[in-house]
Structures are given as C-alpha cells and as structure tokens.
Design a protein around this nucleic acid. Structure first.
Lengths: 350, 350
DNA sequence: TTGAAAGCGCTAACAA
DNA sequence: TTGTTAGCGCTTTCAA
C-alpha cells in the first residue's frame, strides 16, 4: 500500500504480481528466449524488427534481468567485500571511499560489513555474512584487532587483500609506511631541540604499530630517553584527559600523538590547563585530518593518503582476481606537514 | 604465484583448480545431492552417519556453497544497496554505519555506491551498477543533489527508502527534523539578545534545506531582519574565508552555520582576524561532530543521531521488503546542545 | 530418511 | 539471424 500513487501508465493491465522474466518478454515479443538475451547483452546480431519488438516488450513488462541468474551463469561476481572494525572514522571512511572509487570504475560495487570486536563469535559472524554473498574478493582493513582477526579467519581460496599500516606476510597488501613517517616526525621534533618526545598512542592493531615503532626507534637511535607510552582510546575526549595530566609535567616539551583527533584532544587539555601550544609544548598528530589545518593552532602532522591506499588495495585485488602477476605489496610514504603546533622548546630543558 | 606459501595441509592432494560444488561433496560422501543440501540448510533430517560423511567431505574439499546459486533459487537477496553522493563525511559515514548495523543484525550486508554528481551520466552509471546486482532493496541518501537525482532515476518496483533532512512524498523515508532544530537554535540565539542571526549554509540538496528554512522562518516570526545567506562549500576552509570576511562587519553578532566543520572554519577565520568567540560573535554549528566539544571554544550545536537515522532507514526498508505495513515516515528531532561558542552580544547592538 | 526429477532465470553452444 | 538444447549450482517437490 506504500505506492498508492503510481502513475496511470504503469497501472494499466499491471497486476502487481511477479516481476517479468525473460520468458515473458520472449512470449510478448514473439521471439525465442535467447533472442531476448541477445538484445540484452548485445552478444550477437538481432534483426532490427525483432530487436524493436523485444525492446517494446521489455518496456511494456518493465522487465529487469535477474542479477542472481546472471551471476550464476557468469562466474564473475561484481562485488568486492570490505571487512573492517569501523567504517566511519576518518581514516577508515576515506580508505573505503578509495576502494569504492576503484571498484566503481571497474564496474564493481563494494559491500561493507563491520567486525564488532576481535572475539571469535563476532568475527565469525561477520566472515560468514560476507562469504554467504557471492563476492569476487575481499579487502580487509586491519587497522585494529577485529580486522586482524577477520583476516585470519577468512577461508583460503577467496581472493584477499589486506590493508594495514604494518607489513604482514602471506596476503597481498597495500600499506602506508607509517613507521617512516613517525620517524620523520620524531626526528623533526628532536631537531627542534626537544630532549625527547612523548607518545600518546591510539589502540594498536597488534603489539606495537608502525607509528609507535618509528617513534621508539628514532628516539633510541638518537640516544634520547624513551618515555612510557601513554594510551588513548579512539575518542578525542581521552586525549583531553591525557593533555590535562601532562600539562602539569614541565619535563614534557614535545608530544607525538597517534592521530590528529587525539592530538586535538591533548591540545584541548593543555589549553584548559592554561598552557599554550606550541609555547609550552609542541604537539603533533598523524593523518592530516580535514580539520587539522583549522585547529588552533594548526596541527603539524603527517598526511596519509587513505583514499589512495584504498584505490591501490582495489587494484591489488583486481590483479589477484584476474591472476595478473603483481608484487603483492604496495607501499607509500606519508608526508610530514609542518604547521604551527610545533616549535623549539621554550627554554633549554634542564 | 601469490600464495607460494600455503600450509602443507592445504596443499595435499589439492590441485588449485575449480572450487568444489555440491555434486563433488555428494560423490565423495556417497550420498545424493539433495542430502548434502539438507545438511547444509538443515531443512530436513539426515541420518547421523550420512551427516558426518557429508560434513567430512565438505571439510575435505573445502566446499563453500555458491551464493549465486542460492540467490537464484531463494528469491531473497541478502544485500541492501546504499546510493549516496558521498560516503566519508561525518554525517554520511555515520548514517551508513547505522544502516550497516541494522542490516548486519538481520543478516544482510550493505553495498555502497557513490553518485559522483547530479549529471545524468554519472547518476545513471551508479544506478545501473546497483541494479546489476541482486539487491533486496536500496536506501538513498538524499542529502545532496546527486542523491536526489539518484532517487528519481531509480526504477519503480525495487523496494526503496530515502533518507533526508527534508520530507518528500512518494517514497518511505527516514528523516531528522532539521527544520525544528534550526528553529530552536535560532530562537536560542535571539533569546540571548542578538538582533538577528546570520547564516552560512553548506551546499543544499535542493532549493532550500531544512536548516535554512528553520532559520529563516524563525527570524521572520520574530520580526528580525533576514540577512542574505552566505554560501560555503563542504570544505572547512571555505568557512575560514567567510569568517575572515565577516570579522570586519561589527553588525554581525551571531552566526548559525550549516554544519560543525564550517562553524569551526568560521571560528578559525574570526580568530585569525583577531576576534574572539563568543565575546565578539556567537557561532553555532549543526550535527555535534565528535570534535565539536574539543574545539576552542567548544561548539554550541544541534546533535543529530545519524546512526539512529540509518538504523531507522534500514528498518523501514525491511518493512517495505517484507510487506509489513508501516507509516512510511520516520522522523526524529535533533537536540540542541549549548556549549561555549555562544553568548549574549557584547553590547546592545546599535 | 533418502533419491530422482524438476526447476530458479539466464547465457552459451550448436545447429539450422 | 534465429531457435533448440544444455547447463550454471543449488533447493524443492514428489515418491519411495
């Protein structure tokens, strides 16, 4: 009853019953079923007369070929599935955007299904859901433990590509070289004259993520003290709490945050504590979030091309599916962007 | 050559050839095809002995039922498609998250395909792509012109639900009552003592969106002057430009922005111009972006439950698909959140 | 409980 | 150019 107001045209003769199938079209047009198929697919020549009758019948019956039937016969599904622990946070959403862009250009749609947690039950449910569809392949975002778990539980045999910040073997993979970028950012801060750099990390996907590794290694290489890592959640609010705390520790002069949102939270905490950035402390983020340049002060960060990452992952998957030989690894380095949230320390640290 | 390192187990006996089909399983297990189907679906009792042999064969052959074949026979596809002009911006991403949440709970996956622009070519390509899959129904996000266009070009007959800020007839719809929320926000500002409220809008989906309508009507009802609308793009940067300009106009004491990101940009512009918020000007946003409360100053805004919107839309679609009678309209009102970016005007406006 | 037979809606192969 | 005949891989009658 939802469509009580269809046009008169579409109402004529039309019992709202079963949708028309190709046999109906053939009957109405007075041709055989394969002929209809031929005009549908253009696979072979059809005489103009018949073609027109077929077209007319299609129109009249409002016929739409069954995608399911086509999928059964053409063994190439047109869907690539994405499994992810999250879909709406900046990095995730942008990566998915890139995947979709690549997929759509190739005539594929992308399905997304989120993996709520790393627990077996939820991972299996998500994986089963995906495998119950006919998909050409799957791309898993292993930015977090749910993603990592999903990758490991995916059945062998289905074309798979993973996306991550850290390299892992066994599955073709598109990555962003976070380790290098984190090193660069840390070096930059050290070069400014900071004795060491504190680190607030976001929840890692494994024991230690590239951002943390790059930071740690650089500190060690420079002979700087390696402070304890501070853990934030994904919520900017958690950054604020940490900033508030850190603000009372004068030995903290530089902080490298796991992402821009957390950095913004940390800055907020400092601001609330009456401190100013970068005069009292230098704070840098990671990602180059769209709001990073709007922040007060504008955030020094490392730009990550998530959409490009997604596109590369799609390309990798396409290659796997078609059997094109590929180097199964595609890496790109984020670029450091210096803005105003970082500066030399106010005075030489004691 | 990508998987040179499969486990020994999976390598034994396995030519990497065609995937096993149900007939293979039947043969290996020594039973008939329907029997295998029965253990797969649980549609009928199977003796323990056979069941186990079937299970063993499935394991051995690493058999996975073809989703395409199943879809053909069971006429209910398990995919709901989402058509949207964008997927990664906050409101869009959250809405999609909600849709996915509802869909997954019901055993559906969601596919997303973006409509690049409102031009026929790109709209048709997106719509065709979606219709080429076997989908249970489609949800279109008509927050913008591409979305609106997509809705209009979708073939009749496919279960459809739209999501939007403004009501439109003909299609079941889930909305957020932006008009009411915009009114409330405007009234609040007027109540603070501001003579009038300026408005910076984001690109509208049609002639005038609910946010703008609510603002305008409230101003008129209050007998306040209605300033010209200022147009921003979706980029926070465009807000900054507008803020910079507005900062030199002392008659501007209150600004209602189309969304939080733009409001942040506008605030940034004022800040750069040496003005302070809310002392020199009150600025409010819309959406309650996750960073709104981290901003300096924390943003007064209207919280929109996008994820809830998505869930409601999914629920609507489910009802349409199953033929459950529904009121084809589901609305919810955003709630105003007062923070620190708004205050009474500094002095009585002249 | 089980198997044989009959489709699901379409495209591909093969003749005519 | 066109129609007939075979499937695609699965589930669902229908008997046994």
């Amino acid at each position: 009853m939802l469509r009580a107001t269809d046009t008169l045209k579409s109402m004529s003769m039309t019992t709202p019953s079963k949708p028309a199938v190709i046999a109906d079209v053939a009957r109405v047009a007075g041709v055989s079923v394969p002929t209809v198929s031929r005009v549908l697919t253009g696979a072979a020549k059809v005489s103009d007369g018949k073609r027109e009758r077929v077209l007319a019948a299609i129109e009249e019956l409002n016929f739409r070929p069954s995608a399911a039937a086509r999928a059964l016969v053409a063994r190439q599904p047109k869907i690539v599935a994405v499994l992810a622990g999250n879909t709406s946070q900046y990095g995730y959403a942008e990566t998915i955007r890139g995947i979709e862009e690549g997929a759509r250009a190739a005539g594929f749609v992308v399905s997304i299904t989120v993996v709520e947690s790393a627990e077996d039950e939820s991972v299996d449910r998500a994986v089963d859901l995906v495998m119950a569809q006919s998909v050409a392949g799957v791309i898993v975002l292993k930015f977090d433990p749910p993603g990592v778990a999903a990758l490991h539980r995916l059945p062998k045999g289905i074309p798979t590509v993973s996306i991550a910040g850290v390299r892992e073997k066994g599955v073709p993979q598109a990555v962003l070289d976070e380790t290098a970028a984190a090193s660069e950012l840390t070096e930059y801060l050290l070069g400014l004259g900071h004795k060491t750099v504190y680190h607030v990390r976001v929840p890692p996907s494994r024991r230690e993520d590239g951002r943390t590794t790059g930071w740690r290694k650089t500190l060690i290489a420079a002979g700087a003290e390696v402070p304890d890592v501070l853990d934030a959640s994904w919520e900017p609010e958690s950054g604020r709490g940490i900033g508030l705390e850190l603000a009372s520790r004068p030995e903290v002069t530089a902080i490298f945050c796991g992402n821009d949102e957390i950095a913004m939270g940390v800055i907020r905490g400092y601001t609330q504590a009456g401190k100013s950035v970068p005069q009292d402390v230098s704070i840098v983020g990671f990602d180059d979030h769209p709001l990073a340049s709007m922040w007060s002060p504008p955030l020094t960060t490392a730009r990550q091309d998530f959409a490009g990452l997604g596109r590369r992952a799609y390309g990798l998957l396409e290659a796997v599916v078609t059997g094109t030989p590929v180097r199964s690894f595609s890496s790109e380095r984020p670029s450091v962007i210096i803005r105003e949230s970082s500066a030399p320390p106010r005075a030489a640290p004691r």
